[in-house]
Design a protein around this nucleic acid. Sequence first.
DNA 1: CCGAGATCGTTTGTATAGCAACAAGGTTGC
DNA 2: GCAACCTTGTTGCTATACAAACGATCTCGG
Lengths: 139, 139
Amino acid sequence: MKPVPTYRLDDQIGYVLRRVTQRHLAIFSEAIPEVTTTQFAVLARLAEVGPQSQNHLGRATAMDAATIKGVVDRLAKLDFVATSADPDDRRRLTVSLTDAGTALFRGRTQTALAVSDLTLEPLSDAERLMLMALLSRLT
Amino acid sequence: MKPVPTYRLDDQIGYVLRRVTQRHLAIFSEAIPEVTTTQFAVLARLAEVGPQSQNHLGRATAMDAATIKGVVDRLAKLDFVATSADPDDRRRLTVSLTDAGTALFRGRTQTALAVSDLTLEPLSDAERLMLMALLSRLT
DNA sequence: CCGAGATCGTTTGTATAGCAACAAGGTTGC
DNA sequence: GCAACCTTGTTGCTATACAAACGATCTCGG
C-alpha cells in the first residue's frame, strides 16, 4: 500500500500560531485602541533605547525597511513619534518619541502587561514560563 | 517612590508570537512557493472535509468573510479551487478543489509536514508536544 | 403567510508584512 | 582617490486580517 500521509491542519504549528495571534490581537485592540501591537512595539523600543535611525528601529522590532516606514509614518501622523535628519549621515532619518508618544506609552504600560497576561490566562504560572521559554527558542 | 513598570518587549507573548510566525512563514514559502500558508490551509481543509460554502470554509480555517473571499479568489485564479452556485440556497457559493488543487495538496503534503517539523526543529520531541499542547490552549 | 431577524457574499478602508528594485549617500580596499 | 560595495530610505506589488456597511436571500415565529 502507498503510505497516505495524514495532514491535520489543526495540529500544524503555523495554523495554531495564526489562531493564537488572532486572539492576542483581539485582546490588545480592545484594551489599547489607540495603536496597534506593532505600533506599540515601536513605542516600547523607543522608550527603551532612545531615538534610533528608522532602519535600525526596524531591525530592533523585527520589521523590514518597508514595514517600519509605514509604521513610523502612521505613528508620526498620530503625533506619537517625530522624525529628524541625522547631521552625520544625510541618508538617515532619526525617529524619536514625542511627548504624546511618551505619555501614551507610560500611560498604557500596565495595560499592555495586562494584555500579555490575559493572553496567557488559560495557563498556570509554570506553564506560562515554559511556553515563553519554548517559543523563544523558535525565533 | 512611584512604581515604574518594566515593560520588556522581548518578553511579551505578542512580540514573540510575531517573530516565530515570521520564521515559520519564511520556511514555508521557501519550501512551498506555489501558495501561501493561508491558501494551503484552505486546500487542506477542503481536502479534509470536501466542498464547502465560502463563509463556512472561512470559519473552518479561522478567516472572516472578507479574508476568505480574497483567499478563494486568488486560489481560483491559480485554478486550485472552483466555485459554483448552490442550487438549494441562492446566496451560497460552494467552493471545491479542482484536480490541480487536489494534485498540489497531495504532492505537497509531505513537504508541508516537513515545514512544520523544521519550524519546531530547535525543540526535542517532548518539547514539541508540550509547546503544541500549551499553544492549543491559547486558541 | 409575512415580517423580523439571521446568514451569505461583497465592497471599502486601514494596517501589517515581505519582496524587489531603485537612488542617494557612506565606506573600504587597493 | 576612486571604484566597488554596502547602507538607508522610498516606492510598488502582493497577500493576509478585520471592521463596517450593504443588498440579496433564507428562516422562523406567530
